[in-house]
């Protein structure tokens, strides 16, 4: 009986120690997620850029869209203005904190919309243009070491802890040392692979980095993918009036 008690206590100690070891194993991965968040935020500067969105759909063929983006992370603001095609020119998305409005120039109305909606029918979602945090919106489930192309990476499995993110499960391929997300797989609640994302190019902007090429692959519709190329990046201070409904109305047709 006494031996059994010693065995039970020993087992509990081993399990407890293992838990502590496992928790410690995730701590440096948690630090990696923090660094990804830090270097993708631009709290001290504004960002302006041009996004060229090319969607390849097996049914509809190639579609091109040019979008002017203004972004201010301090205050959670962004403005997306569609420049091409001419049919959609003047449509815009204005984010102010928790509120995202879509502006339709033909009705001259602003309508509330959701970050989880698809962006103009492409494989990108409105949330892809805003800031959200890997470190606070996800918990680490597991990780392993691996390589992607010529880069050594951490392969990290994440599970969402809030509903601010578009997908509940994510697998990330993150470069060791530079903490760049090269690849992401996004899964549904039933762990079905929904979308893959590839980030083969980055640009250094101040103390942060920004992906200059993003490829989103619809894993459910064969051959459907969207590529977003970012150009004309500027970190010049933008006037406050850019992030207002008044500016959206003036700039739209």
């Amino acid at each position: 009986m006494k031996q059994l008690r010693y065995f039970a206590v020993g087992l509990l100690l081993v399990l407890g120690f293992s838990t502590i070891v496992l928790a410690d194993d995730f701590s440096h991965i948690r630090e990696v997620l923090h660094r990804i968040d830090e270097q993708s935020r631009f709290d001290d500067t504004d960002l302006a850029s041009v996004l060229t969105v090319i969607t390849e759909d097996p049914e509809k063929g190639l579609e091109k869209m040019v979008v002017r983006q203004f972004r201010r992370d301090d205050g959670e603001r962004f403005l997306l203005l569609i420049q091409e095609p001419s049919v959609q020119k003047g449509q815009g998305y204005l984010l102010e904190g928790d509120n995202l409005w879509f502006y339709d120039p033909s009705s001259r109305k602003f309508a509330h919309t959701s970050m989880k909606e698809s962006f103009q029918g492409s494989d990108a979602r409105n949330a892809d243009f805003s800031q959200w945090s890997y470190s606070s919106s996800y918990k680490i489930v597991d990780y392993s070491d691996g390589t992607l192309g010529k880069f050594e990476v951490y392969i990290i499995d994440l599970e969402a802890v809030d509903d601010t993110v578009p997908y509940p499960y994510v697998k990330l391929w993150v470069t060791k040392g530079t903490n760049l997300v090269l690849r992401a797989e996004e899964y549904s609640l039933t762990k079905r692979l929904m979308r893959s994302a590839l980030f083969p190019n980055y640009a250094k902007v101040g103390s942060g980095v920004i992906p200059t090429q993003m490829i989103f692959i619809d894993e459910l519709v064969k051959g459907k993918k969207t590529q977003i190329t970012i150009s004309e990046i500027s970190t010049n201070k933008l006037p406050d009036h850019v992030f207002t409904k008044a500016y959206v109305e003036r700039v739209s047709r």
């Binding site: 992607l148 010529k150 083969p200 190019n201 980055y202 200059t212």
Partner: peptide
């Protein structure tokens, strides 16, 4: 082809 997609320097110059 991940070897070619992630085979070069990841960083590019900003225009």
């Amino acid at each position: 082809d991940f070897e070619s997609l992630f085979g070069d320097d990841l960083f590019m110059e900003i225009e």
